[in-house]
Amino acid sequence: MIVDLKIKRFDPSDSGGKTWWQEYSVDIHKDSTVLDALIQVREYEDTSLALRCACRASICGSCGMRVNGNAKLVCKTRVVEVAPDGEQIIVEPMGNQHVVKDLVISLDTFFDQIKRIKPYVQPDESPESGEYIASNESMENLLTSMNCIMCGVCVSDCTVLEVDSNFIGPAALAKAWRFVEDPRDSKKESRLSELNNEDGGIWDCTRCMKCVEVCPKGVSPMDRIMELRESAIESGNKNTPGYHHTESFYNSVKKHGRLDETRLAVDSAGITNVTRLLDLAPVGMKAMIKGKLPPILPHKSEDHKNVKKLYNKVEGEEK
């Protein structure tokens, strides 16, 4: 089967670096993966093409790349999945990370993020002999995160990292979740408080779902981040704009059956935080000029009583 590829190349040795697109056609088995096709190019068509790959079985995490715009492990992406009718396949290096050459990105961004969360179990004290006793359920629960192979695919396509390179990122936060949840770890509280307070921490995720969509190992980083938020609140971390935002959202919908956007902005900033509130002023002015300013006083939804009933029901069940 002939596969057509269009590959984004980058040669760093050319002064300042040169980027260009290059097209290749290779003849491979019909069940081949995109990695098989790339290896075929590298071995027989153009030996200067640089890419990382090792295990070919989606366990080493080397071969993250963008295929037709989305980051994937190319070793577990079959050609027929991305080009069912023989379309040209577009391959680019992963995003949000510095390109070293062709499809090879620098690993520094990824592993610097990982190192920020103190990625190792910190037990209080070891049992005198033998293993820690813990239920199988509590351990199996952690496998969701342990399945992470650090391929960087979620970091590549994270929409927050695209605009804020200080965000700890989906992979590192999913790993942080694993230590927060690990019954052997004694630093749950301090981990949560750091993740809660830190600039670039758990509240910087915008819940766009992209990491859940692209993760090749079912880690669902965003879900782990949401669980971290819940845990952080439960353990008393209520001093962040993120928490105030959540709380305001919750109360506003409960009370009015709809979101009071003005109040949300003020609450998130903190009613006593004058600096932050002043920061909001220009945004408010612009919105007003464009006629986009939400009403100062909230309108109630016609159905707000039913919304409140729903709240009461859910809250009752939680108790």
Binding site: Y120, V121, P123, S126, G130, E131, Y132, I133, A134, S135, N136, M139, E140, L142, L143, M146, D182, R184
Partner: peptide, 19 residues
């Protein structure tokens, strides 16, 4: 046992010990 203490999430039995 050392690997377990370093943080490996080994599968466990009903009694909470390594399975």
């Amino acid at each position: 046992i050392e690997l377990e203490r370093m943080g490996v999430i080994f599968s466990r039995g009903e009694d909470g010990r390594l399975g």
